[in-house]
């Protein structure tokens, strides 16, 4: 899928633009975000400890190694999912607000269980991450419905959560070969504004092995694509890139090369 990869890159991108940002792992029991952020050895307290009052929020927040103004709130690997209470999550998000955070990025687990609901309950905006496959699009459709019925904004009858569609693991060649849905197909099915298309790339694997969010791998398509996403989120215009497949020309086919 790519939700955690995206949360890490997006939160880092906001921090690189100067915003004080926190990224919270809601995947209790799995704990992935800290690996991708490369801070797994520095986890002492986690989100559930804070909710249970066993640690203070500023004891649990881990300062990112790349960005001065980015903090990670890791998930617990051992607790059960019921530990995320709505009051607890709300209290943590409110406290982050009081601490002067500009953005709080909530990395949702898969599915529609408690963790996912808690991750979207307090959202102002949602980046729905989808792969160009029918089943993934269906799941995203479902989560969009839940977003508009279970979020606080919906419950209180306020302005609805603002939706963005992010398509990731996109392979223009496979779209060209008819093996994947095109970004236009996905957008037609979901009818949510597209905030970006992230290409399928090995650099994501390298990034996660190094514990470095993919946006930091300068010069790669993935880093550029995530940088565009952050810019669009901040209201800037960026043309869509990495969506067209250029068939290799004759010379390339004759002499190989990549």
């Amino acid at each position: 899928m790519g939700k955690t990869t995206t949360s890490a890159a997006f939160a880092s991108g906001l921090a690189l633009r100067g915003f004080k940002t926190a990224v919270i792992d809601f995947d209790v029991g799995l704990r992935n975000l800290d690996l991708i952020m490369g801070c797994e050895r520095r986890v002492v307290y986690d989100f559930v400890n804070v909710i249970n009052g066993e640690a203070r929020l500023n004891q649990a927040l881990i300062k990112d190694k790349h960005c001065e103004n980015l903090f990670v709130l890791p998930a617990s690997q051992t607790r059960d999912k019921e530990a995320l209470t709505e009051e607890g999550v709300e209290a943590v998000i409110r406290e982050l607000e009081h601490m002067g955070f500009d953005y709080v990025v909530c990395d949702s687990p898969a599915g529609i269980e408690r963790g996912a609901i808690m991750a979207l309950t307090f959202a102002d905006e949602a980046i729905v991450t989808t792969n160009p496959e029918v089943s993934s699009v269906r799941d995203s459709d479902r989560i969009l419905g839940i977003l508009q019925s279970k979020s606080r904004r919906a419950a209180e009858g306020r302005e609805p959560v603002k939706e963005h569609l992010l398509l990731t693991r996109y392979s223009p060649k496979r779209v060209d070969d008819g093996e994947m849905l095109s970004y236009k197909d996905v957008q037609e099915l979901l009818r949510v504004p597209l905030i970006g298309v992230i290409p399928e790339s090995e650099s994501v694997l390298h990034a996660s092995n190094q514990g470095t969010p993919a946006i930091h791998l300068k010069g790669t398509d993935v880093s550029e694509a995530y940088t565009d996403v952050v810019s669009r989120f901040l209201g800037e215009d960026r043309p869509l890139r990495f969506v067209n497949y250029d068939k290799p020309g004759l010379i390339k086919r004759l002499f190989g090369g990549k």
Binding site: R138, D141, R142, L144, G145, I146, Q148, S149, P160, L189, L190, R191
Partner: peptide, 25 residues
């Protein structure tokens, strides 16, 4: 708003107007 996969509405006794379409499921 769009009616999404997994959502269901029932217009008791009358008509329904969907102003943003509906999804599979």
């Amino acid at each position: 708003r769009p009616l999404r996969s997994g959502q269901q509405v029932y217009a008791r006794g009358g008509d329904i107007v969907l102003l943003a379409g509906m999804s599979n499921g």
